[in-house]
């Protein structure tokens, strides 16, 4: 077991290293960031000074080596735009993204699970057709466009909810979150729902498939033979059995939520990591892009690693198989 974990950790480190190399070399193939940093009419001396300040005058491999040493000690360079350490900027923005992604996760489960279970219990009902049709649509509709439509309906036409930004935050149990103030919640609802949409369709499908599968099992029939009410059968016998796989998949998919947050944050001007990186991409703010990339790669590697380890703990037979999710 320990050998398995060590091997997977080593693999992850190698992937991370290769990624950093790829990113760094590719980023040096495109555009000169100095053009972005200085006024085109600046004097050549001025340009050279900026180039030296950011260490851009040195050979590429030296730059990479310095970057790698820095990265190991937690220094991913300074943002060209903000003039501050990239890692500090990201740390500042991360809580907002985490809050958004978590809220979206909660919404997708609270909405998707009941709908999916319903569809599984009544496979031929009208409600089921509507739910499943909706989930096909949910997968087809580009979420960013739905986000815009939500703004039009709820903010512009009805005027119920604010268009953009993050509202007031408050501290509760040591967690700073906008979920603890009314203003914060009002700001959170639209972006979180928008981010949740794609996952809702997924949860519905998973819950439906699980329900159909579990309801056909003997212990459900036995529970009915005991004279239990349908409510009790669903809550005490069906739910615990379908939740295990759903939670596992959602765990793996949490990284995807963080990634998709880039789109949602751009629509709703949510001050999180995603907005930071999109702005950085548009402004060619290299250190931020690189830092974000390494952060996301690390996040995914860690999530995959954790899931693999849990699987291996539960079932040794999975140990040697590839990741088929």
């Amino acid at each position: 077991m320990l050998a398995f974990v060590l091997r997977r950790v080593m693999q992850s480190v190698v992937v991370l290293f290769v990624m950093s190399l790829v990113v760094f070399s590719m980023i040096n193939l495109v555009g000169d960031p100095v053009d972005m940093l200085v006024n085109p009419e600046s004097l050549p001396e001025e340009i050279d000074r900026v180039r030296r300040d950011f260490g851009l005058d040195q050979p590429v491999h030296v730059q990479y080596w310095k970057f790698l040493l820095g990265a190991i000690s937690g220094d991913l360079g300074k943002s060209f735009i903000f003039g501050r350490p990239a890692l500090a900027l990201m740390a500042e923005r991360f809580p907002a993204t985490l809050e958004l992604a978590t809220s979206a996760l909660v919404i997708s489960v609270t909405v998707g699970l009941p709908l999916g279970v319903y569809a599984g219990l009544r496979p031929d009902g009208w409600g089921t057709r509507i739910i499943m049709g909706g989930s096909v649509l949910g997968i087809s509709v580009p979420t960013f466009w739905l986000g815009l439509m939500m703004i039009i309906v709820f903010s512009v036409v009805l005027g119920w909810l604010p268009v953009s930004g993050r509202g007031e935050t408050a501290r509760f149990l040591g967690i700073e979150s906008s979920a603890f103030t009314l203003d914060g919640l009002r700001h959170l609802v639209l972006p979180a729902t928008n981010l949740a949409l794609f996952k809702i369709a997924m949860v519905i499908r998973l819950a439906r498939a699980g329900t159909v599968e579990v309801m056909a099992l003997d212990f459900i029939r036995f529970a009915r033979a005991k004279g239990l009410a349908p409510r009790r059968i669903v809550l005490a016998h069906l739910m615990p059995n379908i939740l295990i796989p759903i939670v596992t998949v959602l765990g793996i998919e949490f990284g995807t939520l963080i990634a998709f947050a880039t789109v949602t944050e751009s629509i709703f001007a949510w001050p999180g990591l995603g907005k930071l990186v999109i702005d950085a991409i548009v402004n060619l703010d290299r250190p931020i892009v690189v830092a974000y990339l390494l952060f996301v790669v690390t996040l995914f590697l860690v999530l995959n690693l954790v899931v693999d380890i849990i699987y291996a703990l539960l079932d040794p037979r999975v140990r040697l198989q590839g990741d088929e999710t």
Binding site: V23, F260, T262, V289
Partner: peptide, 19 residues
Amino acid sequence: DIQLSFPAILVALVLLALL
């Protein structure tokens, strides 16, 4: 496997940031 463990939108975003 490694590539597919990352969401498509993210990979595309990064590639375009570079390209």
